[in-house]
């Protein structure tokens, strides 16, 4: 069932990561991502792996949940791996058969790329999407992007659009689920047939889905106008975000890790 998809889903909790100010979480994540991408030696990569595991532990989510959510990525991971195995050129050749050349360096590099991708995704999920409610994320983005207002970018409207989009993802998933069930109950067959038949089978789902989305959008716009929504001008927030010492400390630690990755990159075997 569609309901079982948890990619990018928020799991409520009360861990250190849950309690960290979402604005800082975005900054922490940025520092972490820079670190992951910059890591080029065995040692610095070991550091990144440790940090990823530590972050996962900090989120207090069960490792099973985190791993389960990596599942949809397996295809991309394997694809990256295979590409790198065949395309990377090194010195120690292992297989040399017609047009296929596999080097030892290629194998190492492929493994490294797969791990790096896994770290990237796990880190982003654990720091942000699993432990921060979508509302908090867009609030934080709005607050972080505020300086852009100076160059007349509609930051508030952008954040509001994002909030609404995020808010309606579960609703749309649920709606799709319902419509699919209803059409299946009338014998719609969505699991067999060729490409053409399968595309045709989507019509009974997409038409009602679009109709209800437009209806919902209309209703939402009306409800917002009824409550005098008029954009971001002079709008205050019920929940003010306040940074605490812990947030600064957490961010500082992540910055130090990020900087040390660049430093450690000079030692050990480079990948």
């Amino acid at each position: 069932m569609l309901k079982d998809i948890t990619l990018g889903q928020f799991f409520p909790g009360n861990s250190l990561l849950h309690r960290t100010d979402p604005r800082f979480k975005i900054l922490i994540l940025l520092a972490f991502l820079v670190g992951v991408i910059a890591a080029k030696s065995v040692y610095s990569f070991a550091l990144i792996l440790t940090v990823t595991v530590l972050l996962t532990a900090l989120s207090r989510l069960s490792p099973k949940t985190v791993l389960k959510n990596l599942k949809p990525l397996i295809f991309i991971l394997i694809f990256t791996g295979i590409l790198n195995v065949f395309l990377y050129k090194g010195d120690n050749i292992l297989v040399d058969w017609h047009f296929i050349h596999i080097y030892r360096e290629g194998l190492i590099y492929a493994a490294f790329m797969m791990l790096r991708l896994a770290c990237l995704v796990t880190g982003s999920f654990v720091v942000l999407t699993y432990t921060t409610s979508p509302l908090d994320i867009s609030d934080a983005l709005e607050s972080l992007l505020k300086p852009l207002k100076l160059i007349r970018l509609p930051v508030h409207e952008f954040a509001m659009m994002m909030t609404i989009a995020l808010r309606f993802i579960p609703t749309l998933v649920e709606e799709t689920d319902k419509i699919m069930s209803a059409q299946k109950a009338r014998g719609a067959d969505m699991e067999s047939g060729g490409l053409r038949k399968r595309i045709a089978a989507l019509v009974p789902i997409l038409v009602p889905l679009f109709v209800s989305s437009f209806r919902r959008a209309d209703e939402l716009a009306e409800a917002m106008e009824c409550r005098c929504y008029h954009g971001g001008e002079g709008r205050t927030k019920m929940k003010q975000m306040k940074s605490r010492f812990a947030d600064w400390a957490f961010f500082a630690v992540m910055l130090i890790i990020c900087v040390s990755v660049f430093f450690i990159n000079r030692f050990g075997v480079r990948i």
Binding site: K178, S181, A182, Q183, A185, R186, G187, P204, P208, V211
Partner: peptide, 24 residues
């Protein structure tokens, strides 16, 4: 027949929509 089954209508005529099930 689900709750609010009217949200499952999709064909361009009522006749065709009713015919969807028996056609399947």
């Amino acid at each position: 027949a689900f709750q609010y089954p009217e949200y499952q209508l999709f064909e361009d005529s009522v006749y065709k929509d009713i015919a969807f099930g028996p056609k399947n």
